[in-house]
Nucleic acid binder design. Structure first.
Length: 713
DNA sequence: CTTGCTACTCTTTTT
DNA sequence: GAGTAGCAAG
């Protein structure tokens, strides 16, 4: 049995697995088997140390990672033990704890979990209750401030506003939380903060949890936030067996509150912390590792790490410039075909990664044109689709009649003659009396034109709630869809309607799979699914995903597209060195996903929206040593591009190239979107001219003379 | 109350 | 260029 536990682990990894009890931090580079070490440690605790499974808590970054860990443990120690572990993401584990202790935190067991979309609606509701203007205080910005506070465990009463805007935030924050509680709901952040608050304030619960969890293990530790850090320290507070695994260089979720300095806190808070480093890489060729190190080395304040492998040098990194996003996508598709036909890789071994979801579109188009299958992770996420959210909202109001955000969503979908005004009146009465919408409707207090429509809806709603405990989730799903009129509403005979109905059916399959489990469990699970969850291993097709979603995955061949300043690094990071460092880590994560082949691509022109503009190569390309590359890094990159692709794309033939420019420094110019400005300089770019203009409103733009429609005044 | 039109803001990244 | 918020008319 022991041999099985350490199968394929080397000495260093084994030492990490068998490290003595107490606080431990494993700092491990990419591809060093971090997750395998963590999994083996769990298996070893169960098998060798004979720890009861329910006394172990293991936290993963995604649900998918949790599932994979459970599968592996099933094989290693058997399902009987693996199933009793407390295993999942921070959010799912907290949801489980809070569901059990719900009365202690002021909600009941059937509380709804609000996602980003719902949260924004709550902010809007709070703003309107406070008579604040949405235009002046952007709901997104206010919500971001609230979410940041929650992740740092700052409650409304502790919130110290230092600006006028923050004073507004404080007021909205208070109201926002009040609305959540009135709706019997918690938001994503509450799952963490309320769990921390519960453990801090309730000694009975704290004692029970601390006694129970003999071992707490955390994967992807570099992406934990303050609340998560507090939580694991609380839970492990008694036995102090805290086993954290992570890589500071792969911290890419600062914008979500992740704080890689938690590693420093860990050593400050635990003077007896054992630190273990794992530097050997089992994934990539040396060329890929050297490229990755060349990129990450430029970041300040990092522990120097030298990654090494026994895999040999391998192929050079291919750097290419293509004309525009479409040709970039075509290059990806063509190269994949080549790789597959040369048997260098199977389709399923290949990934295409990008910085922003919007970039997937051109790639998808190219795959569709070529008639090739692909797997898309995230983007127009299944659970973000309107029809899916609508159906879930129906189920939510059945499960939790206090959920006014969901009620608002579907009360007039399909149109029943219950408009905005009517809903507002209903909601007001409910709030004023501390009642749920359903209770108000039952009393039939609303009169006037809409009374009849409200009465009919009330009858339906009451019937659904009665049936909630009689039918299982699948049956209830069908019943609600049939009686609400939503089915006919979606199936309107159009092609789009058929697509939407197919999505509803897909959701039904998920509902059906929950069997006789309570409705609240189903809704909870659905609220906490992650982007990469729908990545099934079966289909042998290339994967399209964002760099963020690529974390923890590996592929034989990786294409990273959009290697341009403004995309990667993203333009939003230009004026903040911390954010720029995170962009660099993001590229580092992307590069280190590749086992054998890496392609770094960029487009000479790219359209964000509107006409396409000339781009600049990513500054990160400069950091790659020429010796590792097939193609030039940056200087003269254009000359490397396949000349034939440029033909017919714009004006002049190649032979007519000269150095004269239409615009000269100092020219007064006009642009339709940006207004008037002065030309700083203008440079010949192959068959076009790149003009840098200082506009009167202070903006500096680089425009294409041919496409932008720039005029001399 | 609903429908249909125009105008405007977006694009980081997601548990 | 696209999705939606806001508005006017029916």
């Amino acid at each position: 049995m022991d041999a099985n536990l350490f199968d394929n682990l080397n000495t260093a990894q084994r030492q990490a697995v068998e490290v003595k009890d107490g606080p431990v931090l494993v700092i491990a580079g990419p591809g060093s088997g971090k997750t395998r070490v963590l999994t083996s440690r769990v298996a070893w605790l169960l098998e060798v140390r004979q720890v009861y499974p329910y006394r172990i808590m293991a936290v993963t970054f995604t649900n998918k990672a949790a599932r994979e860990m459970r599968d592996r443990l099933n094989r290693m120690v058997g399902a009987a033990r693996a199933n009793d572990l407390m295993l999942g993401t921070f959010h799912s584990i907290c949801a489980r704890i809070l569901r059990r202790e719900a009365p202690l935190i002021g909600v009941d067991r059937d509380f709804t979990i609000y996602d980003a979309d719902d949260q924004l609606n709550v902010v809007k509701a709070a703003l309107s209750e406070l008579n604040l203007d949405e235009k002046k205080y952007k709901p997104g910005a206010v919500h971001h401030a609230i979410s940041t506070s929650k992740n740092e465990l700052i409650w409304p009463e502790d919130y110290k506003p230092d600006t006028y805007f923050n004073e507004i935030v404080r007021r909205v924050y208070e109201k926002y939380n009040a609305i959540l509680r009135a709706n019997n709901a918690l938001d994503f952040d509450d799952l963490l903060t309320e769990a921390v608050r519960l453990l801090r304030q309730n000694q009975t619960v704290r004692d029970r949890m601390q006694e129970r969890y003999l071992h707490v293990l955390v994967d992807e530790f570099q992406d934990t936030n303050i609340a998560q850090y507090a939580l694991i320290n609380l839970i492990a507070g008694r036995h102090r067996n805290l086993f954290c695994v992570g890589d500071p260089d792969q911290s890419i979720y600062k914008w979500r509150g992740a704080d890689y300095r938690n590693a420093n806190r860990l050593s400050d808070d635990h003077p007896d912390l054992s630190v273990i480093a794992l530097d050997q890489n089992y994934r990539s060729t040396q060329t890929i590792l050297d490229s990755a190190m060349a990129v990450i080395r430029k970041n300040p304040n990092r522990r120097h790490i030298k990654l090494f492998t026994e895999h040999g040098q391998g192929a050079k990194v291919v750097v290419r410039e293509l004309f525009n996003a479409d040709e970039e996508a075509q290059y990806v598709v063509d190269t994949i075909n080549e790789l597959v036909s040369q048997q260098a890789a199977q389709a399923g071994d290949i990934a295409v990664m990008y910085r922003t979801n919007a970039q997937s579109r051109a790639i998808e188009d190219a795959f569709v044109r070529a008639g090739m299958p692909y797997k898309l992770v995230g983007a127009t996420r299944f659970y973000a689709r309107k029809e899916v959210k609508d159906v879930l909202a129906y189920l939510r109001i059945v499960n939790n009649p206090a959920d006014s955000i969901s009620l608002q969503r579907i009360v007039n979908v399909p149109p029943r003659g219950i408009g905005e005004k009517t809903f507002a009146t209903l909601d007001e009465i409910a709030r004023a009396n501390g009642m749920t919408g359903l209770e108000v409707l039952k009393q039939g207090k609303l009169s006037g034109r809409s009374a009849k429509a409200l009465g009919e809806f009330s009858t339906l709603w009451q019937q659904w709630v009665r049936l909630r405990d009689e039918l299982n989730v699948g049956q209830l799903f069908d019943h609600v869809l049939n009686t609400s009129g939503y089915r006919e509403f979606i199936q309107d005979g159009t092609e789009e309607g058929a697509d939407r109905w197919a999505n509803v059916q897909e959701l039904r399959t998920v509902a059906e799979a929950s069997g006789d489990a309570p409705l609240s469990d189903f809704l909870s699970d659905v609220a906490l699914v992650s982007e990469s969850d729908n990545l099934e291993e079966t289909a042998n097709a290339p994967v399209l995903l964002t760099l963020h979603a690529a974390k923890g995955l590996e592929f034989r061949c990786v294409f990273i597209v959009g290697m341009e300043d403004g995309i990667l690094p993203h333009s939003r990071s230009f004026d903040d060195p911390e954010e720029m460092a995170e962009e660099r880590r993001l590229l580092y994560v992307g590069i280190t996903r590749a086992k054998e082949r890496l392609y770094l691509l960029r487009a000479f022109r790219r359209g964000t929206y509107g006409p396409s503009e000339v781009t600049n190569p990513s500054r990160f390309l400069d950091d790659l040593p020429a010796g590792l590359l097939d193609g030039k890094s940056r200087k003269n990159a254009a000359l490397q591009a396949d000349v034939t692709r440029w033909k017919g794309s714009a004006a002049a033939p190649l032979s007519s190239y000269n150095l004269t420019t239409e615009f000269k420094a100092g020219d007064r110019v006009y642009h339709q979107k940006f207004g008037e400005g002065i030309v700083q300089r203008s440079i010949r770019q192959r068959d076009d001219e790149e003009v840098e203009v200082y506009f009167d409103d202070g903006k500096i733009k680089r425009l294409s003379a041919g496409i932008s429609g720039l005029k001399k005044l």
